[in-house]
Amino acid sequence: MKKQLLNEIIEKKEKKIEFAIITNLENGESCVFEKNKPISKNFEKHKEKINFQFEKKKNGIIEGTNIFVETYIRPIKVIIVGAVHIAQYLVNFAKSLNFEISIIDPRGYFASKKRFPDIKIINKWPKEAFAEIKTDQNTALIALTHDPKIDDPALQHALKNNFFYIGALGSKKTHANRCSRLKEAGFNDGQINKIFGPIGIKLGGRSAPEIALSIIAQLVSEVYNK
């Protein structure tokens, strides 16, 4: 692999561009493949097969050829509402798992650069914040404030936009109240049941890092469930 290609790959990863690395195992040649972009001459012959493999987002050698394809897909976007203690641990787990993270919290003393270095922080109420972030079915919401004023609008946005994972912190009682508020706001049971509440898998721990671990474990398990 050429050094130049390595740099190109790293740059594309940072820009969250979807691409593949294609390698000819016979002669060691490799290059980047992007959808709807011209393909290197040396791989032209297998263009259709490479494209097919890319669409499937599958890594491997294309049958009947000597071409190895490795796809890089966009990481899942995780939006944390509430720059609380648990969020500080969540951010660390989410980083090692390559999730793309943003934090929303209108409370400036929580959502500070000092508490969350290198993280995108949006110091606004959820409604205004979501106007700035592009969200889709590849987005996850982790609501941590258990304050209806902050969590509820975010949960409503996530339900309306069909986020792939929605979780909310709070006891069973807090969650039951939350569900009835959402019902009053016009959401049906099918939608409301999509929310993981109380959030996280049952680990038993009550400390901030343990709760963060239980949340991130649930999120990863949902990545593979869907």
Binding site: L6, K13, I73, P75, N98, V223
Partner: peptide, 26 residues
């Protein structure tokens, strides 16, 4: 649903190259 659970190996390779080491990618 899929995520790229990336291990930052290529970034580390770049660091090694910048430190003037020869590097093999496996």
């Amino acid at each position: 649903m899929k995520n790229s659970f990336d291990e930052k190996i290529l970034e580390e390779a770049k660091d090694w190259l910048e430190a003037k080491r020869n590097v093999v990618l496996a």
